[in-house]
Design a protein around this nucleic acid. Sequence first.
DNA 1: TTAATTGCAAACGGTTTGCCACGTT
DNA 2: AACGTGGCAAACCGTTTGCAATTAA
Lengths: 130, 130
Amino acid sequence: MADTSKALRNTKQRKYMLELLKSTKQHPNAFWLYENMLGAFPRLSLSTVYRNLGILESQGLVQRLSCSGSFDRYDADISVHSHFYCKECRKVYDVDSAFEKMAVSNIECGGHRPESCQITFMGTCMQCLS
Amino acid sequence: MADTSKALRNTKQRKYMLELLKSTKQHPNAFWLYENMLGAFPRLSLSTVYRNLGILESQGLVQRLSCSGSFDRYDADISVHSHFYCKECRKVYDVDSAFEKMAVSNIECGGHRPESCQITFMGTCMQCLS
DNA sequence: TTAATTGCAAACGGTTTGCCACGTT
DNA sequence: AACGTGGCAAACCGTTTGCAATTAA
């Protein structure tokens, strides 16, 4: 998707986006980013957000989480960790269990060569339980 | 999505779909199912496929796999197992590692209540390696 | 200067929905 | 007969793309 032969420029928009992503513990989607950048960039367009998300992802600065059925979410925390998806409120939480380390270091993958691993728990979150 | 108060009927189309899903080791998307049912149901429409996938999913007979960026895939193997997603050929493979059993039985999930768990490895598959 | 990037608008593609006829129970 | 379901077409919505103007290097 991103052409690595290009000399990337450090755009205000892209810089701002990455900071925004790093500053939140949420796992925003493209539209959330768009809305939260409008203050700083009143003429911002959604396509810019999408294009920059693609660039950041291909640079490995951002992780794309595909949440079943709906829109993708993005996470600037690129450390190895799992996610918990609440089917009630649709929020995504970080989960730090012991499995993902084992899973990622696992090379017993039926002969395939894994590069990364996403562990997603699904259920009801703490907040929705009460 | 599916109304559980309804008395579901056993339609030819739905029965056939489930058999088709069970008969393949692939992880088909809606369109694959559509194409492979056209022989038996020449007037079949895509929306029927989608509606029945929703019903089967809510009955727990089928698992929905969300593959980043593109379309969803479905799996009639509802046993606990992981998936390997090849970024080259975009195929999805079943992987039977030891982790998922541990992961699903894990209740140390930051206070949330997990009901299921999807482990997805991403990388290059055996076939594309050679 | 020049090539990457932006904003805009239109296209795209997978999925959902409204409607009415059909077929299972 | 009653009502869940199918087919059809249009709507939906998140995402991508073409293009001319802008801007970082």
